[in-house]
Amino acid sequence: MRVLDIQSSPRRESSDSSKLTKAFLESCLHYGSSIVVDTLNVRDEHLPEFDYGAIGAKYKAIKNEAMTEMETKVWDQIQSLIQRFQKADCIVLGTPMWNFGLPYKLKQLIDLVAQRNFLFSYDGKQYCPLLNVGKAVVVYTRGSRFLERYSHPTFAI
């Protein structure tokens, strides 16, 4: 089983969301050794900007038009990120509350990968998911204190 572990806290290992997702994954690994974890930390990933060039590449890809070298490079980066989602059997997402919402780097990742005909489809009337992810776990924290005695969940993927 492939697990995509998405970490979005700028506090890294000091963050409660990181500690909780790590404890969850360690518990899962304890019960199932065939788990392969792909950790995607939005702070370390060097995500491309979803700017004029990226949007141009997106529309050229939709229309099967030739791209410039820069557009090809950014579209390849986006496709690489999308493939990590497509390969996952399960997604574990750890995120802190950030100004009453999501951290901007997590939002950037969502903007990059949520592409029509890759993670979802739209036929003009309705949206349909294209991911084959059986389960997703979201750990959403806010300013708090992590207590070690609660760090060993008994959940299994």
Rank of each mutant, 00 (worst) to 15 (best):
A66G: 15
L40N: 00
F50C: 03
L131N: 07
M1P: 00
W75C: 02
C128I: 06
N64E: 14
F85S: 03
E13P: 00
Q86T: 07
P96K: 01
E69N: 13
S18F: 06
L29A: 09
R145P: 01
V42W: 00
L130M: 14
L102C: 11
D123A: 15
I35C: 02
T68S: 15
T68I: 07
F24K: 01
Q79V: 08
R145F: 11
K19L: 14
Q77W: 02
K107R: 11
H152F: 15
A114L: 08
T141M: 04
R142K: 12
L20A: 11
T68G: 07
Y52T: 07
I55D: 12
P10L: 12
P96N: 09
R116H: 10
F118C: 12
R12T: 09
V37D: 03
S80D: 10
T72N: 08
V42L: 04
R149L: 15
T21E: 04
D5R: 03
S34M: 11
L119P: 00
A156D: 08
K73M: 06
H46W: 11
Y59G: 10
Y127R: 06
F120M: 07
K135M: 06
S18I: 02
E26I: 06
D44W: 05
R2E: 04
R43A: 09
L112P: 00
N99F: 10
F100W: 07
F24E: 00
P48F: 09
Q77C: 09
I82D: 02
P153R: 05
I91V: 15
D89G: 12
L106I: 05
G53F: 06
V74L: 08
I78H: 01
S9T: 07
R149Q: 15
V138S: 09
L102I: 14
R11A: 10
Q86I: 08
R116V: 15
P96F: 02
I91R: 01
L93P: 00
G94S: 09
Y31W: 06
F24H: 05
S80E: 11
